[in-house]
Structure formats: structure tokens, C-alpha cells
Write a protein that binds this DNA or RNA. Sequence first.
DNA 1: TGATACCGATCGAGCGTTCGGTCGTCAACT
DNA 2: AGTTGACGACCGAACGCTCGATCGGTATCA
Lengths: 224, 224
Amino acid sequence: MRGDSTAERIKSVAVQLFAQKGFEATAIREIADAAQVSTSSLYHYIDTKEELLTEIMTAAMLKLIKCSLAVVDPTDSPPGRLVALVRCHVGMQIIDRLAALVTDNEIRALHGDDRAKVLKLRDEYEERWTSTLTEGKEDGVFDVAVPKVARLALLEMCNGVARWYKDDGPMAVAEICDHFATLALSMVNAQRDGRPLRIADVTREPSVALYERLVHIAKGGVIE
Amino acid sequence: MRGDSTAERIKSVAVQLFAQKGFEATAIREIADAAQVSTSSLYHYIDTKEELLTEIMTAAMLKLIKCSLAVVDPTDSPPGRLVALVRCHVGMQIIDRLAALVTDNEIRALHGDDRAKVLKLRDEYEERWTSTLTEGKEDGVFDVAVPKVARLALLEMCNGVARWYKDDGPMAVAEICDHFATLALSMVNAQRDGRPLRIADVTREPSVALYERLVHIAKGGVIE
DNA sequence: TGATACCGATCGAGCGTTCGGTCGTCAACT
DNA sequence: AGTTGACGACCGAACGCTCGATCGGTATCA
């Protein structure tokens, strides 16, 4: 990170500070200090503090959507897509942990168009979860009373990962992704021919491989 | 609320504002205005802004613990306790929605002993979830790989309720509690004699009755 | 008499942001 | 080849404002 450009350094420390202390509790001077520029120089790179937050959140959402599009095959069965969605989402919560935390916690700091823009991206993304669950229910492969309730429960449980994950924890990332995919399949009672579906019934890609693909895609360029 | 004492009005508007805008984004003057007192009068009732937050969070946690102790029978089977825990937790997220949101989102605004105190209460509460899951796994009534991961997933999905619940939504509160209890039983693969357990296998108390008990206890009612 | 409830005025600190600069780089023009 | 001027990167100082908190009061009532 030392070798990064000033613009990148600013975004990077801003994400860290926003995640750690919250948007409102972070002073523009702290960001400047941490990025080793003066406050006036900082404003050479950003318009306003709020616009900086918007950029961070938009970038994080776009990255998440990009990864999920790359990893979830729309022609796959609902259980296959669900497993991919969960693995991808949980993986990104960890890969991009700080940005994910900020995106989740600081929406209310945004106003007007900025907020609407980020929320639109989120809704677009969540719709893919809803349709997966609804389709699975119609196919009889999921047994779940109200797909939208299941979606809320699933997404919240996956978002939570960014809140408790620690780099020095006992579990490997891929392991966590698979635990959550298993929990998700159970939660919606995924079954075929009366038999509960497991991850192995639904995909052959090991989650380490998928995780590495995610890391690669996530690093592959920030969409502006 | 109009008839409440000034002290109660202050706490009530503070919870609302903290939940809506966040602790740091809420000015002491806004709280005073909303509570219809001057800022100087406000300080007649509170020590500092942070102590006000601490009190709100502590009260919310104590209320949650009180309700869960009243509603979860420690001699019950793990599935029975899990259903009670989920119903109670989700119910309280709705009954005490704003305080629950604040407790969940604003911990980082607390420092030192205040923070430690609230975290201790939370850990104490969460431990009851962990032991329920662990015991259920040992008994073979839950099929779950790592109880602590399941606990994290369960609690996050239940906490999420306060984030999306709307009073004018299409679902009754008791209905939501039961949806979540069902999802929880599925998630941990609760079963007996190879048959998946449902809420009805585990408790006879309808969730409307339990919900009304919760409201009563939360309001300060006595447990008989 | 003294506690309780309240308030206007004001404190110093810190906030996000702007202003008016400096310094080096590099393409364009003489 | 040497001069010019625009430009990007950067900064010290300060602006107007709001922040949490305090002080010295008054009015009420037991």
C-alpha cells in the first residue's frame, strides 16, 4: 500500500477509518493524516466527504455484482445458484470486508441521489436472490414458506460475516463460505427425491477454487 | 408519549434519533428540541451524550435478557429452547425495534467501561444460544457442523429483523417470529427419529400468546 | 430553606471546506 | 535551445459554523 498513488491511499485509509469509527465520527483531518497529505491536498482528490463515501460504496457494490455475475450461472438450478450466491457473497464480505461493513452500516449518511444510486444497485443485486428462492420454491426443490422472508434472513446472516470475521480466526475463508452455503441449503430445505441436497450434489467446484477466482476478479480493476 | 415525564421523553426521542441518524450524526440540540427542552435543561437529566447512549443500550440488553429468561425454559430440550430463543429475540427486535437497532449499530461509539459493560451483557446472552446449539448437537437432535458458526448465522439473521421491519408491512409480528423459528429449526437440521422437527413438535404455546407475554414483560410487567 | 426543573448566553474546540499560494514537470512557441 | 505558461500535486492558514458542555441564573413547590 505504501507504493500506491495518493488517490488510492486516500480511498484505502478512508475505508479503514469509516469501517472502524463510522462515517460521522471520522474527521476529514484524520483521513488526511492517515493518507499523509494535508487537508487542503485531500480536497484536490475529493469533492466532499460524502462523495468520497458514495464512491467507496458504489465501488464495493459494483465489485460484488461483478463477482456474482461471474460466478453464478443463470442457467444453473436454483440450489446451484443459491450455493454460488452464498459462497460469493460470504467470500466478498471477507475479501472486501471493510468496504462491505461501510456499505452496510453507513447508507444513512448518504442523501439524495447518492443514496438512491447505491440503494438501486443493492435492490438489483438482491432481486437475484429473491428470484432464485422463488424459482426453487416453484420447482419444489426448496421448501420455504415465504421466499422474501428467507431472502432477508439469508442476506442478513451472510452480511453478518463482515461483522465478526477476524483474519487470525481459526477457520479458512473457503471453509466459512462452505459452512454458510450448507446452512443456506438447510434453511430452505433444499431437497431432490426426498433427499436433502448438499453442496456436492449441486456443484463440483471446490470453494477454494471459487475463492481464488473471486480474489482475482475483485482485484481486476475498480469500475468507476 | 405526550404525557410522559421529561426524563422519559428525552430517552424516547434520543432512541428515535440515534436509530434514525446514528449517534454521531445526532446533535445534542436536536435531542433537546425534540424533547421540548433547552440544551441546558437536557443536561439536568443526563451526564453526557455518551452516558445517555450507554443507558439506552444497557436498558435494551437487560430487557432482552429478562424476556428471554422468562420465556426460555432451561430444562426444555434444545429444539424447544431454540424456538423460544428465536421467537423471543425476533419479537424483541420488533417490540423494542429502535433500541435494538441502536444497540446493534452504535457499540463503537462507546468507550472504556461503558462499552465493556454492554459487551459483557451481550456475551452472556449469546452464550445461552451457543450452549443450546452445542447441547443439541451432542444430543444428535441438531445436525450442524460448527455450533458457533450456526450461532453467528442465527443471531445475525434475527438481528436483521430490526433493520427491515416496518409497522405497516404485510405480516403480523407473531407470524414473523414463527417464520424465523421455522427457518432456524431447518438451518440446524433439527430432527427426531429421522423426522424433521417443526415448531408444533416442540412447543404448544402459540406465538401470539408468547408475543403478548413479551409485550407485557417488556413494559415492565411482572413474571408470575 | 432547599431541592427540583428549567433556561439564555456563551465557552473553547473541532468540524468540513476554501483560499491563495508554491513547486516541479512538460509541451508549445519563439 | 531557451523561454513561457498551463497544469497537477501539494500545503499553511483561516473561514464560518456547529459541536458538546457549562455557568449563573429564575420560578416553583414542598
